[in-house]
Design a protein around this nucleic acid. Structure first.
Length: 818
DNA sequence: ATGAATATTT
């Protein structure tokens, strides 16, 4: 089996030396042997360099009393070909300052200039340029080309002054290399039209293009998305003959060109035309498929590479394969790639480990990601960022924050990627302090990146500082509002329950001719639930249909949710069946809807259909189906599904699942069983919600003693927001039993602790207007008529023989039930 | 003995 090889940054395999025949045996020379000694010393030095030992060649060189220019050149070239450009430059400095004067020649200049290009030493390059101009009346084409190349790699491509062009204009003789370098330079400067013009000019001058000419001009048409000229250029390649069409450089860059332009079929044709393929051709083809979201096809090609005996997959191959695996969330495949790597290579490069971390994270196995991260001997900023993002994306925001802390301890600085993860964590945790700190850090360090405003708006809105979000939206994004920014603001208002504001922003968005997309609609739809009216939701649905975005999974799921929350479960059902693409959220929405409408049987049969489909249920799906079972009293089925969740689907239960089970048992009167269930959970069951469900059950079934015990337990847990509700529940239990003294006691306790239950509210939509009511409120413009009608109704009910049961609520108002 | 050139993770 082939051993996996990985590229090192300075891969010498492409140096010219390795294209030469294998080294000849040494010829030993003595200092005074004969006049031919110089060429043989030169051959010896050159051979040492070919063997990758230029330092030894230098030591040998140091023993030579009066080295000639040729010998100096040999060492300089030797260093350059071994990726030691810095040493080459030092050696050049030694040469011109030598006590035994030697004159640099064209070889010295071209190789030293290459050294400058490799190390970005503009000053040395300029000094060389001066020296060349001073010492020679004419500049040879090769030296001129070396100057062109040096300037094109050392100069800032965005600078207004174009020294490269000056040198090119000053060249007395140009050849195809000069033209190619110019085309490359234009591309680097972003002057794509210029690059293409230069290429055309070269053709018009009768210069025959080489493969490099094509490789250099392709990126220009890619950048311009110029599919026409792309075809013209490739046509030219075909015309030039098989030496061009089958050249590995041409094949690889043509595949890349077509793939970048979205024409993956043509890329495949180019790939098939190549009779011989090296690993880079294979990599480009895999990468092309990944780039075009054809992950399965990419993996097919990857598998073919593994089967080849003469091609060894490298870092890039595995990187592309892992990207495809991540996008497909094909964990099985990813694990195979992982074990292949472990089996076949000594060390896994950092970049591959990073991709593995990302892959496991995308497959929701963040623990495995962290194991890989922990085991890494070396980590770069991408490793840290990937792991932090992995935590944040898998709902482990606290771990993500801790890791950022640790990362800074180890000398890595927060960058734009870390910041996006931090902002996401802040908005997930609804923690504006972390968000503000991150915002401050970005401002202090002048860190800017694309979409920064949307991240900030999202964070401030979700963490409750909607006014700051609004300020950012209005001040910082005056002219730069894009779809994402608009969406962030709309979602922000919608999530804060500010429905009117959300719709105002949507209207502004439409007025400014910015098109809403699926994200916009999926963000605004939940606001329709809150507003209580189905009319607005229907309008959004109509909008989605008109703009052909109703087929989107997210929009579909949001529509289902909206209809079912507005009581229109039949419409929700229809949307479900008409949504072409269904994911776990789509299924969960409709199951939840069925459950809330008491349609347990329908929920259950749809859940069965889901299990048989390719869509995997997630933790939320189980909450939906369990609560549906609970509402419908389908206890046995519910318990069975709960078993299945852990054993079959490997989803660890959360407090929400436990709540469902307790609720399910409790509603059915199996209160003691529910209590036993919580006891068995141990410390994991010490969550207010779970005990709260049990307290609810105690009330329904009049379990006074257990209720008192459960309430006591709840009050020790003291989890804030819901506590008032639990006090009210306890007082209701007492009230049901007519124990008014105890009721008073609970209410006094609540007053002492400053607890107040938020009053319940109901609403109804009439003629497109939503009317909200809370107990005893007089805000409605027609409240007097409404109360008069209520009294009439109450009278009618009394006459009909109805006896309401009066129960006490915490704020002293009476509540009519049953 | 010298010059131009392709693929990559958050």
């Amino acid at each position: 089996m082939a051993i996996v090889s990985f590229n090192s940054p300075h891969n010498p395999t492409k140096s010219h030396y390795h294209q030469h025949p294998p080294p000849q045996p040494l010829s030993i020379t003595t200092p005074n042997s004969n006049p031919t000694k110089t060429p043989s010393i030169r051959a010896h030095l050159s051979q040492l360099c070919q063997e990758g030992r230029p330092d030894i060649a230098r030591s040998l060189f140091n023993t030579i009393p009066r080295p000639t220019t040729v010998l100096w050149n040999t060492i300089i070239i030797g260093f350059i070909c071994n990726g030691m450009s810095h040493e080459a430059l030092c050696f050049y400095a030694r040469m011109i300052n030598s006590l035994t004067p030697v004159n640099p020649d064209a070889y010295t200049y071209s190789s030293t200039l290459k050294g400058c290009a490799n190390t970005q030493q503009l000053k040395v390059g300029k000094a060389l340029h001066c020296r060349i101009l001073r010492s020679h009346s004419t500049v040879s084409t090769i030296v001129g080309n070396s100057l062109l190349n040096m300037y094109s790699s050392c100069l800032n491509p965005l600078s207004r002054f174009d020294l490269v062009e000056n040198v090119f204009d000053g060249l007395r003789k140009r050849n195809v290399v000069s033209w190619n370098t110019m085309v490359g330079w234009y591309v680097k400067r972003g002057l794509f039209v210029g690059a293409l013009k230069q290429f055309k000019l070269m053709m018009e001058m009768g210069v025959r293009p080489t493969v490099v000419s094509f490789v250099n001009v392709f990126p220009a048409v890619v950048a311009m998305k110029d599919t026409n000229n792309c075809d013209v250029l490739y046509g030219l390649v075909v015309k030039m003959g098989s030496e061009y069409v089958e050249n590995l450089f041409v094949v690889s860059s043509a595949i890349f060109m077509y793939a970048e332009l979205g024409d993956i079929d043509s890329a495949r044709v180019v790939f098939e035309v190549a009779r011989e393929r090296d690993i880079e051709v294979w990599n480009t083809m895999i990468g092309g498929y990944v780039q075009n979201d054809c992950y399965a096809e990419g993996l097919d090609i990857f598998l073919r590479v593994l089967e080849l005996n003469d091609i060894v997959p490298d870092t890039v191959t595995f990187l592309a394969a892992l990207t495809a695996v991540s996008r497909l969330q094909r964990l099985d495949f990813g694990q195979q790639v992982h074990s292949y790597l472990l089996k076949n290579s000594m060390i896994v490069p950092v970049i591959i480990s990073n991709a593995l971390i990302a892959m496991y994270s995308k497959c929701n196995l963040v623990d495995t990601s962290f194991k890989i991260f922990e085991k890494m001997e070396e980590r770069d900023i991408v490793s840290w960022n990937t792991m932090v993002s992995a935590f944040v994306q898998n709902e482990c925001d606290d771990e993500g924050l801790m890791l950022v802390y640790e990362m800074q301890n180890q000398g890595f600085r927060i960058d734009s990627v870390t910041a996006t993860a931090l902002l996401s964590a802040a908005s997930n945790l609804r923690n504006y302090r972390i968000g503000k700190q991150t915002h401050g850090y970005l401002l202090r360090n002048w860190i800017q990146f694309e979409g920064i405003e949307s991240y900030l708006i999202d964070m401030y809105a979700k963490s409750g500082l909607i006014s700051i979000a609004k300020q950012l939206f209005e001040k910082n994004c005056v002219n730069t509002k894009d779809q994402v920014t608009w969406n962030a603001m709309i979602a922000g208002y919608a999530q804060n329950g500010e429905t009117d504001q959300a719709f105002t922003v949507l209207r502004q968005m439409l007025e400014q001719n910015e098109k809403p997309n699926s994200v916009t609609l999926a963000s605004i739809l939940p606001a329709c639930n809150l507003s209580g009216g189905v009319t607005v939701g229907k309008q959004i649905h109509g909008f989605a249909l008109r703009h052909s975005i109703h087929g989107n999974v997210f929009v579909g799921s949001a529509l289902i949710d909206m209809y079912s929350k507005c009581g229109a479960i039949v419409s929700g059902e229809m949307v479900f069946h008409m949504t072409p693409e269904k994911n776990s959220v789509t299924y969960t929405s409709i199951i939840l809807g069925y459950g809330q409408h008491g349609l347990g049987g329908k929920a259950l049969s749809l859940f069965q259909i889901m299990l048989e489909s390719a869509v995997k249920p997630d933790a939320v799906t189980f909450v939906a189906i369990l609560s549906a079972c609970s509402y419908a009293g389908m206890i046995d089925q519910g318990l069975q599904i709960f078993e299945l969740m852990e054993s079959e689907y490997r989803i660890p239960p959360t407090p929400e699942h436990y709540c469902c089970i307790v609720d399910m048992l409790g509603r059915a009167g199996r209160v003691i069983e529910a209590y036993e269930f919580i006891k068995n959970l141990g410390n994991e069951g010490n969550v207010a919600g779970i005990w709260g469900s049990l307290l609810g059950a105690c009330r329904i079934h009049g379990e006074l003693e257990l209720g008192k015990f459960v309430a006591k337990k709840l009050f020790t847990l003291n989890e804030g927001s819901g506590m008032a509700g639990y006090h009210v529940l306890l007082s209701n239990i007492y009230a049901d039993k007519g124990m008014w003294k105890s009721v008073d006691g609970v209410r006094k306790g609540m007053r002492d602790e400053g607890l107040r239950k938020e009053s319940g509210c109901s609403w109804i939509e009439i003629g497109g207007t939503v009317n909200r009511f809370t107990a005893k409120d007089k805000k409605h413009p027609q409240f007097d008529m409404i109360y008069a009608k209520l009294e009439n109704l109450a009278m009618d009910m009394k006459i009909a023989g109805y006896r309401p049961i009066a129960r006490c609520t915490a704020d002293g108002t009476s509540e009519l039930e049953d």
